[in-house]
Design a protein around this nucleic acid. Structure first.
Lengths: 219, 219
DNA sequence: CAGACTTAATTGTTTTTTGCAAATAACTAT
DNA sequence: ATAGTTATTTGCAAAAAACAATTAAGTCTG
């Protein structure tokens, strides 16, 4: 039977993004075991065929282990494979990327955060993985509600505008951005809720039910 | 050591598209072994850690086994996993999709072709896989040169226009389409080459070197 | 061999989208 | 009250896209 052939090791790795101080950042783990013991790397682990229904469940397990709760946005990114990527042997890593608002992480003292423009050199093929994840993030930012998942439940149009500029890496016209976003129905005004501060109060928005169900269907 | 845990079975499956008689079609295989012996299914196989450098190499091996040569376009689609998708046990399938011009397949008598609107019910989770592949194809058609890989080396603007409409599933204005495509530099005129027939001859085009190198870099 | 026919390709016009600049609105701090 | 600052809207110009019609280039038919 074919399945008696030697099989690759199967693991999941997570590119877990957040935005702190307006900087897109990754949550990393300091490895507690060989190989690469002591180095910072993407959180990950082996798939446990006894407890994980599929690799997405494995990814959620890893994320919960790292930050204590589920990420609001989770999507499969790409599968990396080969004999050379891990010194333990031929391996397959199903990589997911996840977005978490910084507000949810703040109390969590243990997380190691690193802005994407200042990453250390990462073990395995994690450098490549990060590059691919950024590419996807940038790509989706131009036509989906994805970057909104980096924000907490309530946010202003300016917050959203900034996040989009961050992830796309370019300047966007405010008026056009506002227009296009509202037209897509991915966010909605929270009636009578404003962020008040030094100046004119800003209308608060939240993700619309349309955006949330689109995410459930992984669009 | 972690790697002594029970590991999932690792395989690759291929969604191999072509266009025959203006209909987007899939190349299927009649299974020669259990499970689902005798049924039509996507071509696939286990990853051979001795001979495959990575899952993409495994995918190429499967494709060569099926059609006798490499597909002009090949890209990783998605990884499907779980305990229920294959009766042999917890498995991971890294799925690739590939595009092949019908002209290259014509002489190959053994291939079983099936238009995507008239697929039989497929075993495993292959129905889902096909749905995902179509979605990706549709998505990419709107902004890339991808559908052009379904055509032979020389094609007319009308051929291309038809293919795009096929994969997107909507009508596209001829003048606008022409304009946008030419502006992107993904195809180029073949000087002095025309398809002659019953009426006005049509200029022949080919993929530009820009489109070909973009594919090499998997854009 | 003229003209009808058919498909290819271009051109012009209207409509929609986008980018830019300025104006208006709503607050706080002095 | 008013200057200062950020939020939001408005208006207009430029660009892109959709639509409609015209011109081009051949074959086929009587």
């Amino acid at each position: 039977m074919e399945s008696s052939y030697p099989q690759p090791l199967v693991m999941v790795d997570i590119a877990l993004f957040t935005i702190r101080d307006k900087r897109l950042s990754l949550i990393l783990t300091r490895r507690k075991e060989p190989p690469f013991e002591g180095l910072l790397a993407l959180p990950g682990g082996f798939v446990h065929v006894q407890e994980d229904a599929d690799t997405e469940a494995a990814a959620r397990r890893v994320i919960r282990g790292k930050i204590g709760f589920d990420a609001p946005y989770l999507e499969q990114l790409f599968t990396f494979s080969g004999v050379a990527r891990d010194p333990r042997g031929w391996s397959v890593s199903v990589v997911y990327y996840a977005l978490v608002p910084w507000a949810l992480l703040e109390r969590n003292a243990s997380v190691e955060l690193c802005p994407v423009e200042a990453l250390p050199s990462l073990p395995f093929d994690h450098q490549q993985i990060v590059a691919k994840a950024m590419e996807r993030l940038r790509g989706k930012a131009t036509y989906s509600s994805l970057p909104a998942f980096l924000l907490p439940g309530e946010f202003t149009m300016n917050d959203l505008h900034g996040i989009y500029q961050q992830t796309i890496g370019a300047r966007l016209d405010k008026a056009s951005f506002r227009h296009k976003i509202l037209e897509q129905d991915i966010i909605e005004e929270i009636p009578r809720r404003f962020r008040t501060g030094a100046h004119r109060p800003a209308q608060l928005y939240r993700l619309s039910s349309k955006a949330l169900t689109a995410f459930e269907r992984k669009i």
